[in-house]
Design a protein around this nucleic acid. Structure first.
Lengths: 328, 328
DNA sequence: CAGAAAACTGAAAACCTTTTCAGCTTGATT
DNA sequence: AATCAAGCTGAAAAGGTTTTCAGTTTTCTG
């Protein structure tokens, strides 16, 4: 039998209420506090969080719902979220949706049942579209991806701008036939597509976009096709790190090198992007900042529920490397 | 006010007990079940997991305690653990210790308070050494790293064997001055060190081991020193993926190439190891298997608590790439 | 030093379920 | 037709804590 607050109370010769007060750092006479504390030590008492949550109606838990923790972007994000959470004395429940809407709704239901304090959430486009119909009992901060405008707090990159930066960088370096490989599940990929398309048009070039599930396996297949075409493009842009990885794999298979055979640029400044070949040009996202901002927004929302929803938009940073060097 | 089981009961004209039985799929007359189910739908009732856990004494939660989720080994491990967990209808609480013993004890205490069903745990050597003195109220499965012998279930790689494989591979390829860069916090690095040392001795070579905190930043510093020595070794072995990454960075800085300037081999078959230069030779660990095995052991332990502790030892697989090609 | 205010403590209610136990109904068996 | 067993159901207890409320002690004020 596990020892409860009652046992501690008996051991210390006080009421359970007093023990609770000691635990919560409420005002208790020093002498009693002392007795309770030694009683706790002696009995090896550990509070039961379920009971505590039930009674206090505070779960002190935040939910983190992401497509896949193995995507380094979300790995780093989750570390940032957890650090902030544990600083605030909260637990994190991590949910991987695999970009699967039915898993998303299942997890959202779970969050409800956990009575979470709040949720940090990177929704698929499909679920995001219905987000103004859904009503949650907890605050939600969208991250990396946006939902219907004006509905939720969110933290996103300026994706159109970032994609446009990539295009004009390539243009400036002399590349003209620039093709893009975009994810097909997120608003983020969508926004990057828009940025790409507009920038291409602005340069008087014809955009050529391909779509693919945002994982290396799918990307490698698509890249293989693009790269082995007779009229393969002069440059290729990947809409995120996983896709970029797939392209790099395909290029290795086909023994193509950047920038000699084709220029290559993408998103997410993973360490390996600096090490492959002579380095791949990427847009670096302030991932940890994104996580911290999301937590800040969440805490402020909890503090002030009626505040109007806010969008924090951060900028990416172009990291120029050799994969986009002028080829001639 | 949130809707509780009582409200559902009233709406359905039954007792709360019956609603609970419907939820738990116990035997209830079809007609009543029907009424309860529509009442649940109508009221939008969601069970309160805290209350449920308190009363049922089942937390359905497993704790995962790892050094850092950003280490790809643990990223993949955590996905495997979570997949298994959610299949078994359990939640996962993720804890990052940063190889910090005091964070470890704090998290172990948290696990106690959560009344977790079980824990999957990769301890630092420091904490592992005291593991036979600690007594937990929940089953613990050690993973990647071992504790005192015969005390806990565990799943580890055959690290000595794997390190030895690396040495004899290099030896066979003609390398003789083989230096190692090892982590200084885990039993795993220790075991790999033993394997390395023994194998070197068996080959009649002098082992030279360096120790470093197991992260890229520390590794890059150490590697810089080793690589810029006059008498730098012919080959370098890294005891895990993060250290390997640090070495690769240092080599890029110093414009050294493998195998031309120095041979390189390590652990963990991260995707980038196949893409850097002409590929880095590594020992591939069956990471997902390790995670699944750990969960299997955990479930079996819960099932049969008195069973003697078991150690599952899996083998690594040598992936030969160009970084260890004979240089001449 | 009396009285009021402040500080502290304990009993009991409350949080929301599950589970036990006893009672009732139904169906089967003799 | 009577008895028994099996199947369901509801009332109430239980799980471990926090919080309210009222009561007691201490401190302060004049």
């Amino acid at each position: 039998m596990s020892v409860g607050i009652k046992d501690v109370a008996i051991a210390a010769g006080v009421s359970p209420a007093t023990v609770s007060r000691v635990l919560a750092n409420h005002t208790v006479k020093p002498e009693l506090r002392e007795r309770v504390e030694t009683a706790i030590r002696l009995t090896g008492y550990r509070p039961n969080l379920s009971a505590r949550r039930l009674r206090s109606q505070h779960s002190n838990t935040i939910g983190l719902i992401v497509p896949d923790i193995r995507n380094p972007f979300f790995t780093t994000l989750s570390r940032a979220v957890e650090d902030a959470a544990y600083l605030a004395n909260m637990r994190v429940v991590l949910c991987n949706t695999d970009e699967n809407p039915s898993r998303e709704t299942m997890y959202l239901r779970l969050m409800q049942e956990e009575r979470v304090t709040g949720v940090i959430y990177a929704p698929t486009r499909e679920t995001a579209a219905q987000l103004d119909r859904l009503n949650f009992d907890f605050p939600v901060v969208l991250v990396d991806r946006h939902g219907p405008p004006g509905r939720h707090d969110s933290v996103v990159l300026d994706n159109r701008q970032a994609a446009a930066t990539l295009v004009s960088h390539l243009y400036a370096r002399g590349f003209r036939v620039i093709e893009g490989l975009f994810g097909n599940t997120s608003s983020t990929a969508r926004d990057r597509l828009s940025g790409y398309t507009e920038a291409m048009n602005d340069c008087g070039l014809t955009p050529r976009a391909n779509f693919v599930a945002p994982n290396p396996e799918a990307a490698v297949v698509a890249a293989r096709e693009i790269l082995s075409r007779k009229d393969k493009p002069e440059a290729l842009i990947a809409s995120n790190g996983l896709i970029l990885l797939g392209i790099a794999q395909a290029m290795q298979e086909l023994e193509l090198r950047a920038p000699q055979d084709i220029a290559l640029a993408g998103f997410d400044n993973e360490i390996w992007t600096g090490l492959i070949g002579s380095g791949i040009t990427v847009i670096q996202q302030p991932v940890a900042d994104i996580g911290h901002s999301a937590m800040r927004l969440l805490f402020e929302r909890i503090e002030t529920p009626e505040m109007a929803p806010r969008v924090v938009m951060l900028s990416g940073k172009l990291i120029e490397r050799n994969s986009t060097k002028r080829s001639a």
